[in-house]
Design a binder for these strands. Structure first.
Length: 171
DNA sequence: CGGCTTTGACCAGCGC
DNA sequence: GCGCTGGTCAAAGCCG
């Protein structure tokens, strides 16, 4: 579980910041599996947390163009932060905002501005605990991080990542 | 002037 | 078949 961060932090050329390694603790795959469980199960159970099962579908490997109904795997994790937008080092452009059911806070939709990079992410603050922010990433970056890596440490210092085993969040 | 945010409209999928 | 909800688009405005 120490290498999975590569899924999220394609440190292709740039060195992996120690902070990123720390972030890797959550393990995207594990988190992917568990988030659905930690999500507001009591609220609606329609959390977008995980299409983990149908992703990587072998049947679509022959043709990536027909990914019409094929949802890309999403990695959602909850962070405790005062700000909605966690600066993860990439540049994001907001392309939409929607009010969602059972949540008084709108969900923001962002897209990576890098050319050729179609990574998307959703940011949703929870109604129950407005200090909790759920960030859902879709897709993987195929380019190095824009900003200095040291910025990561600052980010991580202000947020708390919930692991599947640490403590379920009751909503 | 360029890039980004805002915001309403539009569209597709899903459940009833 | 219809209505609801989530996700995206695109025009307009704002800001650096």
């Amino acid at each position: 579980m120490e290498n999975h961060y590569q899924k999220f932090f394609p440190a292709s050329s740039s060195p992996v910041p120690s902070a990123a390694a720390a972030a890797a603790t959550y393990d995207p795959f594990t988190a992917n599996t568990l988030v659905p469980n930690t999500r507001q199960a009591s609220n609606n159970g329609k959390f977008v947390g995980s299409e983990s099962d149908d992703q990587l579908k072998p049947s679509a490997e022959d043709d990536k163009n027909k990914e019409k109904k094929v949802r890309k795997p999403r990695y959602a994790f909850q962070t405790r932060s005062r700000v909605d937008i966690l600066d993860d080092g990439y540049r994001w452009r907001k392309y939409g905002q929607k009010a969602v059911k059972n949540n008084k806070f709108p969900r923001g939709y962002y897209r990576c501005t890098h050319k050729g990079c179609s990574v998307k992410k959703q940011v949703q603050r929870l109604t129950k605990d407005e200090s909790l922010v759920v960030t859902t990433y879709e897709g993987m970056h195929n380019h190095p991080i824009d900003k200095a890596a040291d910025n990561f440490e600052h980010i991580l210092s202000q947020m708390h990542i919930y692991t599947p085993f640490s403590k379920p969040i009751h909503l």
